[in-house]
């Protein structure tokens, strides 16, 4: 792992297009400002991991019969989207 020392207000640049700036340091909290293209997802790691785990659990490797939903109107998400 690359470890760099930075002061408040200083930045690093990753791959020429992702800027990470140390905005403020307060005790053990570091505020980061991240500028990245919208095609580069940026997430807090703990939230990312929770959703990643949920996705892995949700993946179906067999087309199992689905349960029936109680009380909900029987409308599927609109799968017939207009042509792009």
């Amino acid at each position: 792992m690359l470890i760099l020392s930075r002061k408040s207000g200083e930045s690093i640049i990753i791959d020429g297009h992702i800027h990470v700036k140390i905005v403020r340091v307060e005790g053990d909290v570091v505020k980061l400002g991240i500028e990245a293209p919208s095609s580069v997802p940026v997430h807090r790691k703990e939230v990312y991991e929770v959703i990643q785990r949920s996705n892995q659990q949700a993946l179906m490797k067999q087309p199992l019969p689905l349960p029936k939903l109680a009380g909900a109107p029987k409308v599927a998400p609109k799968t017939n989207l207009p042509k792009p």
Binding site: L59, M60, Q62, P63, L66, K74, V75, A76, P77, T79
Partner: peptide, 22 residues
């Protein structure tokens, strides 16, 4: 018959899919 569920299926691998709902 599976409403309100739908499938988000991996295009190259119909054995891999997610069940989705509005």
């Amino acid at each position: 018959g599976e409403e309100p569920f739908a499938w988000l299926q991996v295009q190259d691998n119909s054995a891999l899919a997610f069940v989705v709902i509005d």
